[in-house]
Design a protein around this nucleic acid. Structure first.
Lengths: 251, 251
DNA sequence: ATGGACGTTGCAGATATCGCAACAGACCAG
DNA sequence: CTGGTCTGTTGCGATATCTGCAACGTCCAT
């Protein structure tokens, strides 16, 4: 592993916390200012870092554009999107698509609710991993060892009284989810919001992504939302079929 | 500028084109495979690159998460958002917010149309710089020298018959836009879509961002859309006031 | 079996990187 | 106006770091 590159890349999460000047960067990297300067310059030339008018550095526009391309290249997103849109047509609620990658779960697509009340979320945003229905599905499918390690090193913030409180409870929930083949989040992230989710599987049978329907209490109760489960599962299965190459990409 | 870091960062745009294996990366970088391997490993440890099951590399999830944080840290976005939402409430059309940074213009926020017909765009996506109304405003404010250089090195794709055809036409359009203080895109990007845009200025009077309202022909004609101009300008001015610190962040 | 393609490792030599120290410019206070 | 401090910047020599090589392992197809 390359020391120079390692240091340079360490600057990015640092700047993600907010703008910083040369001295601050050098200090946090524990290197000489001149070293930090050279690294920042290189990052700058690639557009990953921007120097604002007050001379401080922050993350740059090209980083955002790169991430955008990264998402557009995910073929699962492309395949799933029309299905998500159709589901949204049918039920009117917000539909999400999420994937797991190296200890993170993130939304990679979203179709907004047609109802005026919308929940906050954003494509690219890391998911509340201990409570979100999609996260449960994605983690439940990990090999046992990895799952235990991950569950152990996670934090368990109590967003609400119904949030998953700790690792054992989480692992138990994951077992249940794996067995039943679907998952819910009933007010575990935001008091008044419920979700139902189903897994999307690749040709190898492993869970490649997960999708969910979310709606606030004020629009439908949790029970009403659960009646959508069959529809959600059918949609997920349709995507699975197409993604794994079994179905010849209908329509 | 650091050679090692430079090479490592060059891998990112390369992978943005699509997944690639070690050999391909090494070849495009013109380095030995072992060198490319070490660079990729370092990128991997930072989560910027992911190794998919077929061993090929593609951009990783952390890159997306980083970009997300980068956008959330843009204070102009935070200030502008409620105004954009309110404007959307009032007119119902899609509202965009865009910034310019180092030869790129990109959308950093968006409020979706309430009408069923939606235009395609995505936060983080680079804007069609030669035709978009927001791009015209942002570029029109650059210092003359920079503007000429930029206009010269741009491509002028003819998305439609009304696209800006070349540098001289573009520069002339920019002059007009700067003078009148607002801009339009009438079917220059997609035949049936029109936009009206207004600039947001910082304390120094320079254009810091631009916002626009877009709607397809089938919903409102270009003339009807133009009647929204005063409203758009008023909204942009309100944001300017708040951003430059003149207005004490109403409400 | 055999060949080729691809990823991976250890090593020795070359070179690019590092920290230093000195410089330059902005800013402020006396 | 002057002296001080703070910031970012540059040139340089020592050396730690990176590089390319060659050899190895593995997988797949012939």
């Amino acid at each position: 592993m390359s020391q120079t590159v390692d240091r340079a890349l360490s600057i990015l999460p640092l700047l993600a916390e907010g703008p910083a000047d040369l001295g601050q960067v050098a200090e946090r990297l524990a290197v000489h200012k001149s070293t930090a300067l050279r690294l920042l310059r290189t990052l700058h030339e690639h557009g990953l870092v921007y120097r604002q008018s007050d001379q401080r550095y922050r993350l740059g526009a090209r980083l955002i554009a790169l991430a955008q391309e990264a998402m557009e290249n995910l073929d699962i997103r492309e395949i799933a999107h029309p299905h998500l849109a159709r589901l949204n047509e049918q039920c009117g609620h917000t539909v999400h698509l999420a994937v797991y990658e190296e200890h993170e779960v993130l939304y990679i697509d979203k179709v907004e609710s047609r109802y005026p009340v919308r929940m906050y979320s954003r494509i690219g945003k890391p998911v509340a991993i201990t409570v979100a229905a999609v996260a449960k599905l994605l983690l439940a499918d990990l090999p046992e060892g990895e799952r235990r390690v991950l569950a152990d090193e996670l934090d368990y913030p109590m967003y609400t009284a119904r949030s998953t409180p700790n690792a054992p409870a989480f692992l138990k929930e994951l077992d249940k989810v794996r067995e039943q083949g679907w998952a819910t989040d009933l007010g575990g992230h935001e008091e008044s919001i419920n979700c139902v989710a189903a897994p999307i599987r690749g040709a190898d049978g492993k869970v490649a992504a997960a999708m969910s329907v979310s709606a606030p209490n004020v629009v439908v109760t949790a029970d009403e939302l659960l009646t959508l489960l069959p529809l959600v599962r059918r949609t997920a299965d349709a995507i699975s079929g197409e993604y794994s190459g079994r179905t010849p990409a209908t329509q």
